[in-house]
Design a protein around this nucleic acid. Structure first.
Lengths: 222, 222
DNA sequence: ACCTGAACACCGTTCAAGT
DNA sequence: ACCTGAACACCGTTCAAGT
């Protein structure tokens, strides 16, 4: 049952297909070999080992992502739109997030958004180290939010859930707050709110420093 | 070579020790059995299986965490101090973050900070759904930041690194920005900056809404 | 009630041997 | 240059059998 010559591209393609269907955890060299119709060991000749295979898969998937075009007029709105675009692109490739995280490549997820963010933050009037901190704040927030969000989706009901703690009057006599915390969070709204607040906060300090003699931004180091 | 009776507590204790030394990935039932001086299968009688064992370990480690006492006077400073306290507590238990994330229990990491945050956000004048969104924004930001941070620590040098893209004049004629992005991020400073900005942004909209007739906060849903 | 070894169905990887 | 099967050193888990 000889099959046509195996190529590295074919290995990556079927590996990507398997990951897309069942997630990276279930991708084993043996299943991949079965999918390819070859011996397990043939794969090693083309991609090295499982580690290299997943690295290549991450790289390939990141490059599939489109470039991010900001929308809106106000600087804050344009920065927010980049963050939302990054989230949208990453959510469209759910397994990428897991693969990248497992492999310690979170930084990789930052890059598609970084150039757009630098441009917008610059346009918003931030310069130098302040601008860099703003870019990274948005990056960390967006990617971190996605990691938490994806993780939460994986096991929807947890115990003790948040709601268990706030079911009644524990929330300082604010029943609306208690109800809101008892309900599961709406990720879309929460992301919109938090990114907007973050960007507002980052831009608010741009024109004038709040602390008179200090050099660093915000809170002093511990 | 009969040993004294095995207890569930003893299993959890040595499992915790092994995880603390080498991380959750390296904890195998067989190594654990070797550490305990029993047969592998004895463990199953006491803790069910590996899944249950790790669940119990997560629960135990979360409960070791102290309660968070806010410091400072201004509402924003007190909220920031809770976020920093949560980060400190979690960083003191590095493997907890990995275990919790692997097991889809990220929500579990939120709880120790939630009560303190609710109190402070309420004191800052936020009520109802707005207060809940603020609490969750800080929670998501802090835990998300930690996930990214820990991940980044695991593989310090990545390629292409951020610096490779900004080594020269690409950063819109802002050499200080280019230099800042070429250097690795300082997580302590970045966390301080981002949390401060986030909290400022969340509290800034508390006294008056920015949008006149709208009901939702910030950006409209897509 | 608690512990055990044998056995099962998996893994990733190496390597000598083939063509 | 490319592919193969056998083998190695691991896994988690089940289960009948012991005390």
């Amino acid at each position: 049952m000889a099959r046509s010559a195996l190529t590295r591209e074919e290995v990556l393609a079927t590996a990507a297909a398997l990951v897309r269907q069942h997630g990276p955890q279930t991708l084993t060299m043996r299943k991949l070999a079965a999918g390819l119709g070859t011996a397990v060991t043939s794969i090693y000749w083309h991609v090295g080992n499982r580690e290299c295979l997943l690295d290549a898969l991450v790289e390939r998937t990141v490059q599939e992502m489109g470039t991010l075009r900001p929308t809106g007029r106000a600087p804050a709105a344009r920065i927010v739109s980049v963050a939302r675009g990054l989230r949208r692109e990453l959510r469209a490739r759910p397994h990428l997030i897991a693969m990248v995280h497992e492999r310690g490549l979170t930084e990789r997820m930052f890059l598609p958004a970084q150039q757009a963010l630098v441009h917008e933050v610059h346009a918003a009037g931030l310069r130098g180290a302040r601008a860099a901190a703003a870019v990274r704040s948005v990056q960390f927030h967006t990617v971190g939010f996605l990691l938490v969000e994806r993780n939460r989706e994986r096991s929807p009901v947890q115990s003790p859930a948040e709601g268990d703690l706030w079911s009644e009057s524990t929330a300082g006599g604010d029943p609306a707050l208690a109800r809101a915390l008892a309900r599961p969070a709406d990720p879309d709204r929460l992301f919109a709110t938090s990114v907007r607040a973050l960007v507002d906060g980052l831009l608010a300090g741009s024109s004038q420093e709040r602390r008179s003699p200090g050099q660093g931004p915000g809170v002093t180091a511990e």
